[in-house]
């Protein structure tokens, strides 16, 4: 290693270390929450459509691995992820679909982006994403870039913003289209 490179490494170290420290604090705070609920509003902006699609509902989280997204507008829908199983139900049509995340390499990272964040599990996040953290415990922002080229082809990045132990915004930027989910913690 040249002296110059060593210098750069030494200079870079403190700021990285500080970010690592804040990330650890945020993850610890998130991990301490065993159960939470939030109202959400989601806006999808698709290039094929001339106006965004809006949906509303509630999000429920229960550690270690149960996440439910219950949409009430514009129609009833339940998306439940628990363990390795993803269940999607449309009660108005009597339709339900189960996907095993083990066999769905494209879907798993998208699920873990939210679930592992809520669980405060940075190791799992790093398994699927490059993780760029900024801010501090009071107000933080994580940019997740998929590691798998296949996933990257569909989703460029997922940005998650929050305050302390609350996730407030999940923004997904796809090659075609963008969705922004805003959560308001209940309780």
């Amino acid at each position: 290693m040249t002296r110059r490179a060593m210098l750069i490494t030494l200079l870079a170290l403190p700021s990285t270390a500080i970010a690592q420290d804040a990330l650890a604090q945020v993850m610890a705070a998130l991990a301490a929450i065993r159960e939470s609920q939030a109202r959400f509003v989601e806006e999808k902006d698709l290039p094929e459509l001339d106006r965004p699609l809006t949906s509303r509902g509630t999000l429920s989280w229960r550690a270690p691995d149960r996440l439910e997204k219950h949409t009430s507008e514009p129609f009833e829908e339940r998306l439940l992820v628990e363990g390795d199983r993803l269940l999607l139900e449309r009660p108005d049509r009597g339709a339900s679909q189960t996907v095993m995340l083990d066999t769905a390499a494209d879907i798993r990272p998208l699920v873990e982006a939210i679930r592992a964040t809520l669980a405060g599990d940075a190791a799992t996040l790093r398994q699927y994403f490059q993780l760029d953290f900024s801010g501090d415990l009071a107000r933080w922002r994580m940019v997740l870039t998929p590691l798998s080229a296949r996933v990257l082809a569909a989703v460029q990045r997922i940005v998650i913003e929050g305050e302390a132990a609350s996730v407030l915004v999940v923004e997904t930027q796809g090659r075609e289209g963008r969705s922004r989910l805003m959560a308001t913690p209940l309780r």
Partner: peptide, 17 residues
């Protein structure tokens, strides 16, 4: 359109249009 509003939207986009 109904499918695009749903959470299954990412799956549908692949062939839907």
């Amino acid at each position: 359109l109904d499918g695009l509003r749903s959470s299954a939207e990412p799956l549908l986009r692949r062939f839907g249009f």
